[in-house]
């Protein structure tokens, strides 16, 4: 029962969606549409599951860490609350001897950010149109949090990669083999061709050789050899996904069910 029913659900849902694509008539066509909508709804429950798990794990870590921090503060004797306040930065940022309780302050930060964003979004706090307004309306607290926390954090995280890419490119751009040289030359043409410098360095070329200017060369590389490579990769991935989907639908691939322990 614990494994057979989920396998049956996978088989029915997967088969109906495939049949619906080939026989877009009742009842398959409608079932296919409904299953897609149900999928979106269950996916939102998966977000709730993720949030719940986050609160559970960080909540437990916070309670354990605060308990240890209070115990540590009490060791000093005297007015421990005052001692706790004075030693707070130390106790919060790795001052505890026991590793299990060390990162409690970071868990607190996670939970504060989580609940603040959640409250601002679910209650539409500060939304100029009230309950009926769009949750992402400008001037709403949710959008303000997005602009001041989510967006800077996300953009800077990705921007940070620029430095690591620079260090990686130093290693990758050492033309040790024919393949590495091709990679180096292509990346160089693309980088140069998409900047004003690319047009500047080959501006002297006569009209008859205009196809050899760096911007035109970059366009050609993107449109032809790059596209050919991408297509080979896409076709390979598609074959893999199709085979995997079939394995899942007919029940050969069962790893998503996990073990029978719980």
């Amino acid at each position: 029962m614990r494994r057979q029913i989920p396998l049956l659900i996978t088989l029915i849902v997967g088969a109906v969606l495939i049949i619906a694509a080939f026989i877009p008539r009742a009842p398959f066509g409608r079932l296919g549409e409904n299953f897609s909508l149900y999928f979106d709804i269950i996916a939102v429950f998966a977000f709730l599951l993720g949030g719940g798990n986050l609160v559970r794990i960080h909540g437990a870590r916070l309670v354990r860490g605060v308990g240890m921090a209070v115990t540590e503060a009490k060791k000093g004797g005297g007015a421990w609350p005052l001692r706790f306040v004075i030693e707070f930065p130390f106790l919060a940022f790795g001052g505890l001897k026991d590793r299990r309780g060390r990162d409690w302050f970071f868990s607190l930060i996670t939970l504060l950010g989580f609940f603040a964003m959640l409250a601002a979004g679910l209650l539409k706090l500060g939304n100029p149109s009230g309950w009926q307004g769009n949750v992402t309306a400008p001037e709403g607290m949710f959008q303000d949090f997005y602009d001041s926390m989510f967006n800077p954090l996300q953009a800077t995280m990705y921007a940070l990669l620029a430095f690591f890419v620079a260090s990686a490119s130093y290693r990758a751009f050492r033309a040790k083999s024919a393949e590495a040289t091709i990679l180096l030359v292509t990346a160089f043409i693309i980088l140069l061709g998409r900047t004003p410098a690319g047009a500047y360095v080959t501006a002297w070329m006569p009209e008859s050789l205009s196809f050899l200017t760096v911007p035109n060369l970059a366009n050609w590389v993107m449109a032809i050899p790059n596209l050919a490579g991408q297509r080979a990769i896409i076709i390979g991935i598609a074959l893999g996904v199709i085979a995997m989907s079939l394995r899942v639908i007919i029940g050969i691939e069962r790893t998503y069910l996990g073990s029978d322990e719980k």
């Binding site: 614990r2 969606l17 269950i42 996990g258 719980k262």
Partner: peptide, 29 residues
């Protein structure tokens, strides 16, 4: 009773497999 979640997971996996089969076959292959 964590196994109860498998029913929903099976639905998600089945939908993903069914949709991907058609989508990848038509557009990517």
């Amino acid at each position: 009773g964590a196994w109860i979640a498998r029913w929903a997971l099976a639905f998600i996996v089945g939908t993903t497999a069914g949709l991907n089969f058609i989508r990848y076959m038509a557009s990517d292959l």
